[in-house]
Simulated assay, not measured.
Amino acid sequence: MVGQQRQLQRLRSVILHLFVFGFALIMIYPLAWMLSSSLKDNSEIFINAHQLLPSHFNFNNYINGFKGFAGTSFIVFFKNSLIITLFSVIGTVISSTMVAYGFARIRFRGSRFWFACMMLTMMLPSEVLTIPQYIFFQKIDWINTFLPLIVPSFFGGAFFIFLIIQFLRGIPKELDESATIDGCGRYRIFMQILVPLLVPPIITVSIFKFYWTWDDFFSPLLYLNSPKLATVSLAIKNMSDPTAQTDWGAMFAMSVLSLLPIVAVFIAFQKYIVEGISTTGLKG
């Protein structure tokens, strides 16, 4: 009986691993196809689309892709995306952490009402805010600049604020009281005691904000009109010209390179993503 149970457990384990492996192949196939297409000639990409291995490797696609379009190198587009993403991450982390500290640790009149208002903003579709925001930014002459893509990040995000609040609620308030007795004000309590303890959720917030900003296509399309200000996602779309022959190989090559920062960030900080989400879910 014991031997049969062990065999059944091994069989279940083998079936489970085969299922996971097959599912992983399905998920990774589009990425493998894109990588393969970035090394094919344009004539081969769609004719032999079912073949992952190109008949010969064409690395000129990456050289042609870096040339960009409209006289602007693709390095400029990477620089634009990096500037917008880094400043957006910094603004989101600073503002969301400060607002979360206010809601979690400071009792003020109407705190529950404002917290409810903040949570309600998570239910608003982004499409509802598009036209009012565009009109506002147009009135203050921010169109065709990076400001509409960066400045709103310095006013926090409801999802990120809630995530940090949940973590703060798991930190004993006795730490604040002990620091107050020792003569610390709210600023020192926040910066020297709580912020070092908030490293897991802060890194989680940074990673999610990095992903969402780097991959954003709609906002740059809406606010950026000059080709020299285009982000990576917008530049890749502009490489596809319906009125002329599109260099699909170069387009796929730049698509592959655009994924490298995301993959690098995920590999470097994946343990913090799990730690940040699990601790915010368990505490409080």
Rank of each mutant, 00 (worst) to 15 (best):
I165Y: 07
Q166A: 12
L168Y: 13
L168D: 06
K173D: 14
K173A: 11
E174S: 13
L175H: 09
L175N: 08
L175W: 03
L175Y: 09
D176L: 00
S178T: 09
A179M: 06
T180V: 13
I181C: 15
D182W: 04
D182Y: 05
D182R: 03
G185A: 09
R186E: 15
R186N: 13
R186H: 15
Y187H: 15
R188Y: 14
I189K: 13
F190L: 11
M191N: 13
Q192C: 11
I193V: 15
L194M: 14
V195D: 06
P196R: 06
L197P: 06
V199T: 09
P200Y: 10
T204M: 01
T204L: 11
V205T: 14
I207G: 08
I207A: 08
I207V: 15
I207S: 09
F208K: 08
F208P: 09
K209E: 08
F210D: 06
F210Q: 01
Y211L: 13
W212A: 14
W212D: 14
T213N: 03
T213V: 13
T213H: 08
D215R: 00
D215W: 01
D215Q: 10
D216F: 04
D216P: 08
F217T: 10
F217L: 15
L224H: 09
N225M: 14
S226H: 02
P227H: 10
K228C: 02
A230K: 11
A230V: 00
A230S: 14
T231V: 04
V232N: 10
L234K: 14
L234V: 05
L234Q: 13
N238M: 13
M239H: 11
S240D: 00
S240Y: 11
P242D: 07
Q245P: 00
Q245R: 04
Q245D: 01
T246H: 03
T246F: 02
G249V: 09
G249D: 08
G249A: 05
A250F: 05
A250E: 06
A250T: 07
A250Q: 06
F252C: 01
A253K: 05
A253I: 04
A253M: 02
M254H: 12
M254I: 11
